[in-house]
């Protein structure tokens, strides 16, 4: 079987390919793919959908320990459904156990490719993971709204999308770095032409669901006008020893859903 790591090549605005790279979330995904491959004794396949410059990311993955690399050749920006379909097509015939993706890319990504990919390859999905534990089972901790968490046992075949902080990509060994420079990258033809809407609109951040304001009319108006600051709790002054203060902070963070 094979563990697949999906990587997205990004080039900063107004910069050339020398400054390109993958997002921290994708680096993290690659590391999880490598760990899964080692634990399960499976090969790791790195795949990307992008231009020739993206070979750099694949070579880095090979240097770190991936056994195989595929680039779906695509120059234009694509819809998430098209990217997922292209990846699914490229790994058709591969006996996939897990697919590791970053939760979303830095170029205003929507984080939807992993979900579409799971649908395409008919695999389970565990998305937006903030912790992965590899034991006899793959246990993943998933971030939910409102600071809540969901702990899942994820059996293969499954698509995992992880946040950047879940793992640090290993340093490629020298032998891997040397070999990867001339390693073979399989290139398959990808979708042609842009499938994105031609009309570009200004960037708008994603909508967030907020709880309805509490209290009377005046307080609600004040809350709306002040962005919530007027009705926000300003905390409770406490006098504690350093140890107690640290405990109190951790308890508060836990209560707010950050732990």
């Amino acid at each position: 079987m094979t563990v697949v790591a999906c990587l997205k090549w990004l080039t900063p605005h107004d910069a050339d390919d020398r400054f390109g790279g993958i997002s921290p979330a994708d680096s993290s995904a690659l590391e999880w793919a490598l760990r899964l491959g080692e634990q399960r004794g499976e090969d790791v396949l790195a795949i990307t959908v992008g231009p020739a410059a993206a070979d750099t990311a694949l070579r880095d993955a090979l240097a770190c320990g991936a056994q195989r690399a595929i680039r779906v050749d695509a120059v234009d920006e694509l819809l998430s459904t098209d990217v997922a379909a292209a990846i699914a097509s490229a790994i058709d015939g591969v006996d996939v156990s897990y697919v590791c993706c970053g939760d979303y890319s830095l170029d205003r990504g929507t984080g939807s490719v992993p979900a579409f990919l799971a649908a395409q390859i008919e695999a389970r999905q565990a998305l937006g993971l903030i912790e992965v534990v590899l034991g006899s089972d793959v246990i993943a901790l998933r971030r939910l709204d409102g600071g809540r968490r969901e702990r899942l046992r994820v059996d293969a075949p499954a698509v995992l999308s992880v946040e950047g902080a879940t793992a640090t990509l290993r340093r490629a060994p020298l032998s891997g770095a040397l070999a990867a420079r001339n390693a073979t990258i399989e290139v398959v033809a990808g979708p042609v032409g842009s499938h994105l809407p031609t009309a570009r609109r200004p960037y708008r951040p994603r909508a967030r669901v907020l709880p309805p304001p509490k209290g009377g009319t005046l307080e609600r108006v004040q809350s709306l006008l002040s962005g919530g600051a007027a009705t926000k709790s300003h905390g409770v002054p406490v006098e504690l020893s350093p140890d107690e203060a640290a405990e109190r902070i951790l308890a508060a963070l836990d209560e707010w859903g950050y732990a």
């Binding site: 340093r171 060994p173 020298l174 032998s175 770095a177």
Partner: peptide, 9 residues
């Protein structure tokens, strides 16, 4: 010697 694992050349 380099800073990479198995980094001698």
């Amino acid at each position: 010697r380099t800073d990479r694992p198995d980094g001698d050349l």
